[in-house]
C-alpha cells in the first residue's frame, strides 16, 4: 500500500508532475477542497496538493514509518488498514477521496470502493489495467504471468492480488450502483490509442466516481 521511496520535497513536485496519472488527478481536484487519500504513503501527493491547490488533507496509511513521514510533512494522517473498518470516517465528509493505484492490493476492493463513494462526495480512483496489450502479449506468447515496469513482481510474491481490466472495473461499478462520471485512460506514448481503445492500450485509468443514490 505504501511506496517506500521517500522523496525530498523539491523533487516531489517534479516527480508527481512527471507521472501522468497523478498530474491528471491533480487537475481534477478543486482548490480549497477537503481531500482524503486512502493509502497515502509518505503523504507526497497530499503535500503537493496542499501546496499547489490549498486543499485541506487527510491521509490513511498502514505503514507506521510512512505515517511518521506524513507527520513530518505536516499532513494529518490516520495510521490504519484500509482492509478493516473505515467507519471512523463520516459519510460525505470529504469533497474528494483518492485511491491511487492501491485498489489491486486490497483484500476486499469491492468494500473499499463502496467506502470511497460513501465518505467522499466523489472519488478519484487510479486503476492499473491488466488488460493492457503488453500484459496480454506476455501471457499469450510466453505463457507466463506478465512481469514489467508496472507489474514488477513474481506471481507468488506480488502485492497486486486483485488485478482486473478497465472493462472489469466498469462492471464492478455497475454492480455496486456506482456512477462513473468521467474516465481518463493513461497511456504511455500512444495517447491516441489509449484514448480510443483504453482496455487494450491504457496501462492505467483514472475513474471519477460517485454514489448513484
Amino acid at each position: 500500500m505504501s511506496k517506500k521511496a521517500v522523496i525530498s520535497p523539491e523533487t516531489t513536485a517534479e516527480a508527481i508532475i512527471s507521472r501522468p496519472d497523478l498530474r491528471r488527478m491533480a487537475e481534477l481536484i478543486e482548490p480549497g477542497s477537503r481531500v482524503l487519500d486512502l493509502g497515502c504513503g509518505s503523504g507526497e501527493f497530499l503535500g503537493f496538493l496542499k501546496k499547489r491547490k490549498n486543499i485541506r488533507p487527510l491521509g490513511v496509511e498502514i505503514d507506521a514509518d510512512m505515517v511518521a513521514e506524513c507527520v513530518k510533512r505536516g499532513i494529518p494522517v490516520i495510521h490504519g488498514d484500509l482492509n478493516s473498518n473505515l467507519d471512523y470516517l463520516q459519510s460525505a465528509s470529504f469533497d474528494c477521496v483518492l485511491l491511487t493505484r492501491v485498489l489491486q492490493e486490497l483484500t476486499n476492493p469491492e468494500a473499499v470502493l463502496k467506502e470511497v463513494v460513501r465518505i467522499g462526495k466523489r472519488g478519484l480512483v487510479g486503476f492499473i489495467n491488466f488488460g493492457h496489450i503488453r500484459n496480454r502479449w506476455q501471457l499469450a506468447l510466453a505463457g507466463r504471468m506478465p512481469k514489467n515496469v508496472a507489474l514488477p513482481h513474481e506471481w507468488y510474491n506480488t502485492p497486486n492480488i486483485h488485478l482486473g481490466t478497465i472493462r472489469d472495473f466498469r462492471d464492478l461499478c455497475d454492480s455496486l450502483d456506482i456512477e462513473i462520471i468521467r474516465s481518463f485512460p493513461v497511456g504511455r506514448d500512444r495517447s491516441f490509442l489509449a484514448a480510443n481503445l483504453p482496455n487494450l492500450f491504457a496501462y492505467a485509468c483514472i475513474f471519477e466516481i460517485r454514489n448513484k443514490k
Binding site: 477537503r34 485541506r56 487527510l58 507506521a64 505515517v67 511518521a68 506524513c70 507527520v71 494529518p76 494522517v77 490516520i78 495510521h79 490504519g80 467507519d87 471512523y88 470516517l89 463520516q90 465528509s93
Partner: peptide, 21 residues
Amino acid sequence: SEVIVKAALANDLNCSFCEIE
C-alpha cells in the same frame, strides 16, 4: 485511542494518529 480519533474527525478537526509497535 481510535475512539478519540473518530470523535475528532466527526468534528472535522485536523487529527493524526499513530500506533507504535
